[in-house]
Simulated scan of single mutants.
Amino acid sequence: MNEPTLSLLALLLATFVAAGLVKGVTGMGLPTVAMGVLGALMTPAAAAALLVIPAFVTNVWQLLAGPSVAALARRLWTMMAGIVAGTVAGSAMLARVDPRWSGLALGVALIGYAACAWASPALSAPERAEPWLSPAVGLLTGLITGATGVFVMPAVPYLQSLRLDKDDLVQALGLSFTVSTAALAAGLMVHGAFRAGELGLSVLAVAPALLGMRLGQQLRARISPALFRRCFLLFLMLLGLELVARPFLP
């Protein structure tokens, strides 16, 4: 990445305030929004490096917001191990592939997530399947995370299918996103795509992300969460379509 300019800093500020606001209203979406916006303006590898610290801080906050961390970690540890292995392996694509094609992969991930979330299929994973399904979902989530910087597929629908209560689901998502963020940072460093300058900008992005979360939490009580969610998903789908089309445009 080139030396940060005033316009780049303003863009980062606006992006992470917006991404934090989405997370404050919906409980998720900060990395997805940040990758979608920044990935349309810079290489996906650079965008992923910038989101690591604010995503980690906000996800740890979400993870520690309830009493079930240890129980969820024991239940989901094979999924978390799969996420780590898949992310470190998949990040080679984010770091080394032509940015046009890694951007296309990011676009596909955004469209897939938006379509799945819009449809909201009523999935239910039988308990007897968890011993093999959890590591498989974790590995696939990790590969997608490593290749695109987006943490949500298929981890989010899988965790929803476990029929956890509301508070446990929020914590389980926080656990998955925290592990994904740490593994993405490790993968980017292993493949030489996480540099000192990007680390500094990532640290600077924490404050606007937390400000956005606070605003989103206040906004949640004043708007229809369902309407906000539909607008958010439509925005992600349009961003995804633009990224998918980019390699084929003159």
Rank of each mutant, 00 (worst) to 15 (best):
R74Y: 10
E3C: 08
P131R: 13
R74K: 12
G240N: 10
G146S: 04
C231P: 01
M28N: 09
L94A: 05
R75V: 02
M237W: 11
G29T: 07
V170F: 06
D165P: 10
Q160Y: 08
M153K: 07
V156S: 05
P208S: 11
V17I: 15
M93G: 12
V88I: 14
M153Q: 10
C116P: 01
V150W: 06
P157Y: 14
L249D: 05
A226H: 12
H191V: 03
A48D: 11
A207R: 07
L204A: 15
A40V: 06
V97A: 14
P247G: 03
G24L: 00
L211R: 08
V150Y: 04
A221C: 00
A207F: 13
K166A: 15
G216A: 10
L50A: 11
A55Q: 11
V33R: 03
Y158C: 09
P4Q: 09
G174P: 06
A185F: 00
L236P: 09
P135K: 11
V57I: 14
L233K: 12
L169M: 12
T181S: 13
F56V: 13
L210F: 11
L51V: 15
L210A: 14
G200L: 14
A73C: 09
A49V: 05
G112N: 05
V206G: 08
S68G: 14
E127L: 12
V108S: 01
A119K: 13
M35K: 07
A125Q: 12
L143I: 14
L51G: 06
V150L: 12
L51S: 13
T141I: 10
G192H: 02
W101A: 06
L233R: 09
R74I: 02
M79D: 01
A186Y: 01
A125K: 02
W132Y: 15
V60H: 02
H191I: 01
D167W: 03
A129L: 15
N2V: 12
G66C: 02
F56I: 10
G39N: 07
T178S: 15
V203K: 03
L211M: 12
L169I: 03
A147W: 07
L106F: 01
G212I: 02
T145K: 06
S68W: 07
